Simulated assay, not measured.
Amino acid sequence: MADKHGAEKHIDEISGVETTGHEWDGIRELNNPMPRWWVWTFYATIVWALGYTIAYPAWPMLSEATRGVLGYSSRANVAQDLQVAKAAQTVYLDRIAAAPFADIVADPELAQFAISGGASAFKVNCAQCHGSGAAGSAGFPNLNDDDWVWGGSIDEIYTTIAHGIRFEGDADTHVSEMPAFGDMLQPEEIRQVAAYVVSLTGTPHDASLVEPGKQLFADNCASCHGEDAKGNREMGAPNLADAIWLKGEGEEAIANQVRAPKHGVMPAWLPRLGEPTVKQLAVFVHSLGGGE
């Protein structure tokens, strides 16, 4: 039997069904028609798709999509849901904005709302620097421990978040500038200071440098970091006697910081986020490791 093009058709001997002409390793493909139910289901999906694109927004145009005859808008639904959620939160946000931190913490329901809201705001605005778990990284403080440069009470944390650190756009921002002692001390003296600082929590590379480094520390560093090197939160001078390092750990890293210090910058979040959100952030961060 030949088809309309004159090519010889092949009929499977066992089933009596025409084959497609495709063959793999001696196995021929039968040209069985699709089941009737499958074909009609396929046609039904086409009709459904056409009806859906007419009823609902579907086809993209130059400036917007077709709106559909039903006038449905998922964006409008989301906006409405957000308004409902915001209205439900308003009573808590107003209380947080008006209440002192002591009252917020003393109210379990309000405190939980503030912690939850602060956690959400932290993930959106703070996790990029401090990490999703607030553990920080080199140059970005770990907020889970009890070591604070500018103070760990809720009020102090609030001030830091609200006004930032070395943020030029806020007159009340925290400012502390460690001088570059590479312009004041000799390289050997910087190594001595680094050795002394290491000796407070560990073993320096050369113990003979510790004693002269101690005197250099007293002459040049104690005015900010304190005679015991435990820091001064009013000046933003870190505690150097707790083995927690912000700019890098080890004798070489300490020497580099003494020689040419790095100064971090944090934006003032109050103008961006508003009073209730910043207070929620302060409560949340304090719950991680405030301890005061």
Rank of each mutant, 00 (worst) to 15 (best):
A2Q: 15
D3W: 05
H5D: 13
G6Y: 06
E8S: 10
D12F: 09
I14T: 09
V17H: 08
T19D: 10
T20R: 12
H22Y: 15
G26T: 00
E29K: 06
M34H: 12
R36K: 15
W38C: 10
F42S: 06
Y43T: 09
Y43S: 03
A44R: 04
V47Q: 05
A49N: 03
A49S: 00
Y52H: 10
Y52L: 06
I54S: 04
P57A: 08
W59M: 13
T66A: 02
A76M: 10
Q80A: 03
D81H: 13
L82A: 03
V84Y: 10
V84A: 14
A85M: 04
Q89M: 06
Q89T: 00
T90G: 04
Y92Q: 05
A97Y: 11
A97H: 13
A97F: 12
P100Q: 03
P108K: 06
P108I: 09
E109N: 13
A111F: 11
Q112R: 13
S116F: 11
S120Q: 11
S120G: 13
A121D: 12
F122E: 02
K123R: 12
V124M: 14
V124T: 11
V124D: 12
C126W: 01
A127R: 07
C129K: 01
C129E: 03
H130R: 03
G131E: 12
S132R: 15
G133E: 15
A134R: 03
A135T: 08
A138K: 05
P141D: 02
W150Y: 00
G152A: 10
S153I: 01
E156T: 11
Y158Q: 05
T159G: 15
T159E: 14
T160D: 12
I161C: 04
I161H: 06
F167A: 13
G169W: 15
A171Q: 15
D172Y: 15
S176F: 14
A180P: 14
G182R: 07
P187F: 07
E188Y: 02
R191W: 07
A194Y: 03
L200I: 01
T201C: 03
T201Y: 13
G202V: 04
P204W: 01
H205T: 09
G213L: 11
G213H: 02
K214L: 12
K214G: 12
Q215E: 03
L216H: 10
F217N: 07
F217C: 06
F217D: 05
F217E: 03
A218Y: 01
A222S: 14
G231V: 02
P238L: 12
N239M: 15
N239K: 11
N239T: 13
L240V: 09
L240I: 08
L246K: 01
G248T: 07
G248H: 01
G248C: 01
E251W: 00
A253S: 00
A255K: 11
R259Y: 01
R259T: 07
A260F: 08
M266W: 05
A268E: 02
A268K: 01
L270E: 00
L273T: 02
L273I: 04
L273W: 07
K279R: 07
K279C: 05
Q280C: 15
A282N: 10
H286G: 05
G290N: 13
